[in-house]
Structure formats: C-alpha cells, structure tokens
Nucleic acid binder design. Structure first.
Lengths: 142, 142
DNA sequence: TACTTATTGCAAGTCATATGCATCTGTAGT
DNA sequence: ACTACAGATGCATATGACTTGCAATAAGTA
C-alpha cells in the first residue's frame, strides 16, 4: 500500500469542503503548496501551463477562497494574490514598491492584535482576521 | 491680516511638493481633510460634485500619492481607497466583509513592526511603511 | 451504468483605471 | 502686467482584471 499522496490529501480536502475533486483543482492546490509566496491569477495560469482555462482559475480560486482553503492577499490594488491557507502559519509580506517583489515575513511571537482592535470599535461584532504587510524597496530597486 | 487659511495651507503644500496648486486639487485636499475615513475614487468624484473630471481625480490622486501627500489603502483588491497622509497619525482600519463598511482603528502604543520585519529579510534595503488592517463583520451584517 | 448537478470552456460583458492628444492654466521670468 | 512654457485638464478611447450566460462535460452517487 502506498502512503497517502498529496493527490489524495487535496482530493479529500476538496470533498470535505463540499467541492468536487477535479484534476484542475488538485493541480492548482499542488502548485500553491509548492509555491511559498502568494501568486497572481496570471502567474497561476502560466504555471499551470494551460491545463486550466483562465476563467476556471478565477472560479476555482473563488470557490477555494470561500471555503478558506486559499487566502486572498491584498498587496496591490489591482492584482489579487492567492496563497494556500490550509495547514499554514499566519504570516506577513514585504512588498517592493519598485518591482513588486514579494517576500514572506514571519514575526515571532506576533501578538493577536484583533483583541485590541475589538476594544476600539462598537460597530463590529466580529474581527477575526487581520493583515500586516510591509512596503519598501528591495536591494535591486532601492 | 487674516490668518493662514486651509486654502493657503494646501496651496503651499502642493507647491512645496513641486505640484501646481490648482483649484481642483485644493478642493480635493479639503475634502480629504474633512473626511476621516478612506474614500474610493468614485466617492471622491461624487463628493466633489462635478468640479473635477473623473480622469483628473485619478491623475491628481496619483500625483499626490507619489508625493506622499495622500495614502493609498488596499482594503479590497478591486477598489483603491485614499486618505490624507500629511499631518495625520498612522492608523489602521476595520473592514466589514459583508457591506464594506470601514472604521478607523487607533492602536495605542503600537510597536514599530518594520524594525522586526527588516530583521527577517536580506532582500530589502528599506521597509518604511506597513499596513495593519482588520476584517470581520459589522453589527448589521454579523 | 445511468443520473444528477457541479464544473468547465468559450464568448462576450462589466468595471476600475490608464493613455493619447488637443486645450487650457499656473507659475516663473521679463 | 505680459509672455512663454511645462504641467494640468477634459474628452474619447484603450487596457486589463475580473465576471457572467450558456451549452457541453465530468465528478459523485445509487
């Protein structure tokens, strides 16, 4: 008996979320797992090498996002970036204003600032996620 | 002698930045000063009541952004929000996933996390700004 | 194997934002 | 004040990310 493959793992993940485990979606998840940094739809489409139509990439990412399997990262106002959420630590990003280069940032012992934010507002009943992103210039651009 | 008006203040601010002090830009800055929360281009255009063409709003915001007079806030991937930067404290936002309602959040004694982020990267020469945004549901939507 | 319904691809549409170009206006120099 | 020039504006149009309608296909289930 072979041990559980990634193939199987992602198929189960999809089915448990109530989604169908299609070859395209499994390839998409395998790609995102291999890739440490958030990708744009364009990058995903290219890296998938034509096995999935662009529209399907959008629709799949949207389905996966609604199931919280992937995370949508707002680093620029005109390109959404996506990364795998399932089974990953919450982390942050550094973005170069010059070339758009992205790097993951892990801040050790990061506090849970949602608690503090909740104290500041009376208009929200839930604040369950936050994003902390850094901007600057990479060594090439700066 | 009248004391310095906002008109004058913004005109100087623009000229010091190497930009021309046009009536439209001064109205735009006055609007942003009056408005505590970040606005979309569409909201700005409407609130300016036709004194400025939509394209000019885009171009002015871009010019002001490059001079760091306004701040571009990435709260959603498909609508940029802008707020006055000059003379304001750095603050954060809470965004409702249901209706898009935005509230400003001031976290007292917020640490300067750029320092910590700089320790994490060897690829960046500068990390000078960061954004900390919260997401959840407002009381109407949650 | 057959059935049901989610998923896919194609074509076309929407919407935010950008650009080319001619005109206008702030501003510096006279 | 007058001029000249570069920056700013408006209009029409383009771009590019993302979405939607619809018919064809394939995943899950009995």
């Amino acid at each position: 008996m072979a041990s559980t493959t990634n193939e199987d793992r992602f198929a189960s993940l999809l089915r448990e979320a109530g989604l169908r485990a299609t070859p395209g979606r499994i390839s998409l998840l395998k790609l995102l797992e291999k890739e440490p940094k958030p990708l744009t739809v364009y990058q995903i489409e290219k890296k998938l090498g034509g096995i999935m139509n662009q529209v399907t990439v959008y629709r799949s990412l949207d389905a996966l996002y609604r199931k919280q399997i992937v995370k949508r990262v707002n680093l620029e106002h005109d390109h959404a970036h996506f990364e795998l959420a399932a089974g990953r630590e919450h982390h942050h990003h550094a973005v170069c204003r010059g070339c758009g280069y992205i790097e993951n940032i892990e801040i050790p012992h990061a506090p849970k600032p949602e608690k503090e934010a909740m104290k500041q507002t009376r208009a929200f009943s839930v604040l369950d996620t936050y994003s902390l992103e850094f901007f600057g210039l990479c060594k090439k651009c700066g």
